[in-house]
Write a protein that binds this DNA or RNA. Structure first.
Lengths: 146, 146
DNA sequence: ATGGAAGTTTAGCATTGGCTAAACCTATTG
DNA sequence: CAATAGGTTTAGCCAATGCTAAACTTCCAT
């Protein structure tokens, strides 16, 4: 029954895609946090929990809890009642996020999307694009931009 | 202090984007389920929970639990030990998902992405593209395709 | 008609990510 | 230098999404 075999193969690939999406989702929050923290440090010299909470649109307490997990993962460090710092790994992740973000947002703008929408959509999309797709977007951008 | 005012404004927009992403995530699972169920019904005449579990790459029990929620949301119906059906709303959501999926995947292919990657990335991206971006992708596709 | 294999569901647990309310520090200002 | 306002953390709750192991149905083959 080659039918069966073929279908099982397809199913496996499909499930791999969904697995990757679930994995992406766990890292997504972390990336958003570190990227935002990096922005705050660059913009204002320091990142406060309450500022992170405001920009992400969540409660203060949620940020505290999440930062604990990020600290356990070795992405940030923080003393109680003090501002937040990124570790080496944290900075690496933040830079990578910014890089992806810039490519995706620039690409959407090049496609003719409005600034508003480009900003919103790129925020959602950046965590789900493979390097291959990023390369294609960058290529498109380069051709268009020149 | 116009500085402050401007920054607060930006923050509000940013947080709106993140809020939307969080909202997208809740509907994302539902969309994946109904889309997959629709595919199974079309492909094999019926959708069994175990088949859904296999294709999504999750345990059977997880599917059972999620289907209960989807039933409460009025997207699917199911009798114990029987196969799964979509309600009118369920079909509507499935069709919408397929539509988005087709546009995004076609767009990625048109960009020169490999089939494998296009399938995987489109699965993740489809839930985060606005109608505006979809329209731009469709436009691009039409121009390219003709 | 029934016994057992295969398929489904239940039970119970863990983690993530959200919230509010209350407790707790810090730092400014009078 | 003390009071207090404002920022931060804790405590305790909830829902969603995942898992494994055990219980339970269904249905096919003898």
């Amino acid at each position: 029954m080659p039918q069966r075999a073929k279908k099982a193969g397809t199913a496996k690939i499909r499930s791999a895609a969904f697995r990757r999406i679930r994995a992406d989702h766990s890292s997504e929050l972390a990336e958003d946090y570190v990227e935002l923290i990096a922005d705050l440090i660059d913009e204002k010299g320091e990142a406060r929990g309450s500022e992170v909470a405001m920009r992400l649109g969540v409660a203060n307490a949620t940020v505290v809890k999440t930062l604990k997990r990020l600290q356990d993962s070795g992405l940030v460090t923080q003393e109680p009642y003090r501002s937040i710092f990124l570790t080496g790994d944290g900075w690496k992740m933040a830079e990578d996020g910014r890089r992806k973000h810039k490519i995706v947002e620039g690409f959407l703008l090049a496609l003719g999307i409005s600034e508003e929408t480009a900003r919103i959509d790129s925020e959602g999309i950046e965590h789900h694009v493979s390097e291959e797709t990023l390369r294609a977007m960058a290529r498109f951008l380069a051709r268009k931009g020149s």
